[in-house]
């Protein structure tokens, strides 16, 4: 092997790569917010007394968890225009990421809700609170705390999954890297660099999750 490393194109492209990182973080954070909302709402609907609602949630979760994300993102990209919604690649990617992350979040958060002692719920009812308030004020926070490591692990996964959005040319790091690679043919240098960048972003994410945890989930338990 007689390969000489040349990081010139990477250095020239660094501002673009950093913008790509920002794009990735936008996709990741927006996707997470949507996933969290879908996760919480999905758990509530999953326990609904209305059977069709429960089934819809189960079907959604199974569908997402048993199909590849690349196919899901293509599906959203080509299905939305059929119902008259035209979106640019980046919003499309955010929706797909949110749906995908949401399905996993439903399963994870559901586990957290089930881990809450039923005495907590009964105490809420005995005090006269309605079901909705019992969920919102009594169950939700301890449930999220219980599954926080799995949930944030899933969200780091989501951050890395954003790279698949390059398939529809959403604005994020891998798309930017592909452009630089196409012009320079410096595949190893380019992908080596974004490997490091993805790693740093994951690390940053974990730190941020740690801060959130200290703020919201640091109440003492026995």
């Amino acid at each position: 092997m007689n390969y000489t490393l040349d990081f010139g194109p990477v250095v020239t492209g660094l501002p673009d790569l950093l913008k790509g990182c920002a794009g990735t973080l936008v996709l990741a954070v927006s996707g997470m917010v949507i996933a969290l909302v879908i996760g919480v709402v999905g758990v509530v609907l999953r326990e609904s007394p209305l059977r069709p609602l429960r089934w819809a949630v189960i079907a959604f979760v199974e569908l997402i968890r048993n199909t590849p994300f690349l196919v899901q993102i293509y599906f959203v990209f080509f299905a939305l225009p059929l119902i008259g919604i035209r979106l640019a690649p980046t919003p499309t990617a955010i929706i797909a990421l949110g749906l995908n992350g949401g399905a996993y979040a439903i399963e994870i958060i559901r586990g957290g809700v089930q881990s809450i002692h039923k005495g907590q719920v009964e105490a809420g009812f005995a005090l006269g609170l309605h079901k909705r308030d019992v969920f919102r004020f009594i169950v939700l926070r301890p449930a999220l705390r219980a599954v926080y490591p799995s949930l944030t692990g899933q969200f780091v996964m989501l951050t890395l999954t954003t790279s698949i959005a390059s398939a529809i040319a959403a604005y994020e790091l891998t798309s930017v890297a592909k452009l630089i690679e196409n012009e320079s043919f410096r595949s190893f240098e380019v992908y080596g660099t974004i490997t490091v960048l993805y790693f740093l972003m994951s690390w940053l994410m974990m730190r941020a999750f740690g801060l959130v945890s200290r703020r919201y989930f640091s109440y003492p338990v026995k």
Partner: peptide, 12 residues
Amino acid sequence: GMVFQSFNLFPH
């Protein structure tokens, strides 16, 4: 009002 054997205070 009700008081339970296991207190059931809200930990958070």
